[in-house]
Design a protein around this nucleic acid. Structure first.
Lengths: 167, 167
DNA sequence: CACCACATGTAAATGGTTACATGATTCT
DNA sequence: AGAATCATGTAACCATTTACATGTGGTG
């Protein structure tokens, strides 16, 4: 029942955005990525515009080509097939339980290459940076995402505090 | 003082491997990635062989071309410049405090697209999968990495347990 | 009108991926 | 000797990236 998804995570996130807003343009989707505190995706036009076309061609989005004005202005909406695909991706437990790409964890795995003093300093600095991030609401306009992000940060800080024993 | 690194995370991890083992072939580095439980990098030859060449050309690795037998068999070692570069990457606090790419977090952000019942089921399944992973030592041969990985898993499970309040 | 922010793309480069080819070594 | 496995690559493809080009609508 693995139902391994045919969507990249960026595609899935874009699809989810369209679903949640009940329709969006490529620009709106790109802007949302660009403004998110997650630095992993740039939210560049070069990524998003072709991506939306792909989703359209695969039948997961439909285009209400609202040619308002003279320039093309494509409003996308999710289709039933798209919703199904999205649910498949959301429910992909194996994918969700994967390790992903964690810049802190990757560094911790190789921290032995740093002298003891620098190791401590590094951990202290990262911890301080995370605390600083906690002080600034990342999504002032979305309470759920804000709460999720806050809990992620808090958990990360807790991890660092526990690490002393491991290192 | 940001010292933003010129290394990709894969390059840095490869460099660190060479440093820790006191020298390695491209094959050894690739195999290490392939065997790691982190699924994010495939550890494919197509990634690693060219990568090692890049690091060599930039002066961060040196090649002891032990032409043993008839086929090329290149043993790489880290240079002083490479060590410095690696330390720069390791100490990059801004990078380490970033969000990276977390397949669970990405899904949680869009879990509203799933009906309530499926949401619970999803969380339960992911939690169970993480618990299952905890039972199998991921690095039987490296106690430090094993401990780090175990603490990562434990922390992740704790996060899921706390999420009930957020969702 | 001039300018600037908003919006819609395209082009070239990058750093990965999978799949393939093939040489060398070890096992039966 | 033949087969399996270890090892070293290369080729084609892919989803991104950065940088650029350009149209459009509102504001001084």
């Amino acid at each position: 029942m693995a139902r391994t998804s045919t969507l990249t995570d960026l595609e899935a996130a874009a699809l989810a955005q369209v679903a949640e807003k009940g329709g969006a343009t490529s620009y709106a989707v790109a802007r949302a990525f660009a403004q998110s505190p997650a630095e992993y995706w740039s939210g560049s036009a070069g990524a998003v515009y072709p991506l939306m076309e792909r989703l359209l061609k695969r039948g997961w989005l439909q285009a209400n080509a609202g040619a308002q004005g003279k320039r093309k202005r494509t409003q996308y909406q999710i289709t039933d097939a798209g919703r199904q695909e999205l649910e498949g991706w959301l429910g992909d437990v194996a994918g969700a339980a994967g390790m992903g790409m964690d810049p802190l964890r990757t560094r911790l795995a190789h921290l032995g290459n740093l002298p003891e003093a620098k190791r401590r300093e590094f951990l202290n600095s990262v911890r301080a940076e995370l605390v600083a991030q906690s002080a600034v609401p990342a999504w002032p306009d979305d309470q759920r995402l804000q709460a999720l992000h806050a809990s992620w940060l808090a958990n990360r800080i807790a991890w660092i505090d526990q690490l002393e024993r491991v290192l």
